[in-house]
Design a binder for these strands. Sequence first.
RNA 1: GCUCCGAUAGUGUAGCACGGCCAAUCAUGCAGGACUCUCACUCCUGCGACUGGGGUUCGAAUCCCCAUCGGAGCACCA
Length: 472
Amino acid sequence: MEEGQQVVMRFAPNPNGPPTLGSTRGIVVNSEYVKRYGGKFIIRFDDTDPQTKRPMLEAYDWYIDDCKWLGAEPDEVVIASDRIPIYYEYAKLLIEMGHAYVCFCNGAEFKKLKDSKQACPHRNTSPGENLEKWEKMLSGEYEEKTAVLRIKTDIQHKDPALRDFGAFRIIRTPHPRPEVDDKYCVWPLLDFEGAIEDHELGMTHIIRGKDLMDSEKRQGYIYSYLGWTYPKTTHWGRVKIHEFGKFSTSGLRHAIEEGEYSGWDDPRLPTLRALRRRGIMPEAIRKFMIDMGVGETDISISLDTLYAENRKIIDPKANRYFFVWDPVHIEIKGREHCIATPPLHPTEDRGNREIEAGPQLYICREDADKLTAGSKIRLKELCNIEITSLEPLQASYLDDSIGSVKKEKVKIIHWAPADGIPVTVLSPDGEFRGIGEKQIATELDNVVQFERFGFCRVDDVGKEIVAYYTHK
RNA sequence: GCUCCGAUAGUGUAGCACGGCCAAUCAUGCAGGACUCUCACUCCUGCGACUGGGGUUCGAAUCCCCAUCGGAGCACCA
């Protein structure tokens, strides 16, 4: 990238669902360049398809919200469906110049001709006549699918993808935005809308997916007809995330409607809202995306890298608590009531928590399963015990000293008091239910670490704790 | 079918536009160890790659060609 030049870049989603990890690359990478070089970051909603990829009203705010959360607050917000008249003007201009024509072929017919490098019968219509037909299109005289405005390129071009492409089509479905609704029945297609907007908004650079490489070549025709210079472009390859595989916004939407997921922030989903709810920090996501670079290679990446990034950020901040999943009751004979005071954090000096402990406790089943009568074990920050019975699980109190434990390398496990608070952890791999220490209730919205379990974000602290699993 | 793009360790990435400083960087992962009243954190050590074949050159990860593999476009989707 050049020195000392101000940059104008954009992120242009169709708000037909919330931002996902896929969209995030566009947000982070583009905004990062603007941060580094100075300039303007624009979010432009390419919401010009009221039908097939129908925008979702709530999603506009979701995008802006998630951009802010990611530290990529846009300097300007543009909504394409507000700017249809601009596109009409340029369409008219191009028709007058003889670079666009109204085509009445049906899709299959046109494709056949195009594939054999044949011009369709409408290609040679005079600008004047095209103008009339264009007006008719706009005034609603034609039915859906009967007419389309095409941009002339080179019908003989060796790359079929670049031969005369569609610029506007007729859609009678009203737009979901109430301010637009049924105002228009002629809608621009991406290559046209994007071409005009990128120029109108003064874009200097565009970084987007490789799938839009041909877009640049198609739009190049419009740019040269209008005497414009195309922004500098860079492309990135296809990204596949191991944990999520292939997904599409419409597919997710369907699954949510079917009740397969609890909503757009279901912890199993690759949406930003879900990751946020799980306690993934925006800085971690930014770093993850930036380290990925902008190579054209198709990549298949694991979330482990994101988790490692996130762990570095949250580990010093997350207070530690005991959460016993799949709990098993254990009785400690000879143990008085007392208050255990484990530190909130092992290395950061942040004080201690208090847990009232009596003879009745819970431990994890997976720990209990490893016990045999006579085994010695240390209850972390509490005391040492010796198992006396497995069914029911009982133990006798030995002592409190930690010294012997270290010397003898006795296994240390965590525990929860009998009167602890119920905890449910929602994770991508399912739910974990158990008992935790009551003080977890003071951590609403915070990411904590359940010792020997993993990091979680405390989502609700009513009668029971609901936490979303972050990662190990 | 036509067209376009890409290919460095398990994964991601640096290096490639201006060939030698690359027996190839960094991160993550994995293995071993230290530390630790967590299976977290931290620290140490180790593992591991230029897709293949030709060519150009004194010299190629870097340039050229072919092959293979991967991806994308050819929508009245974005």
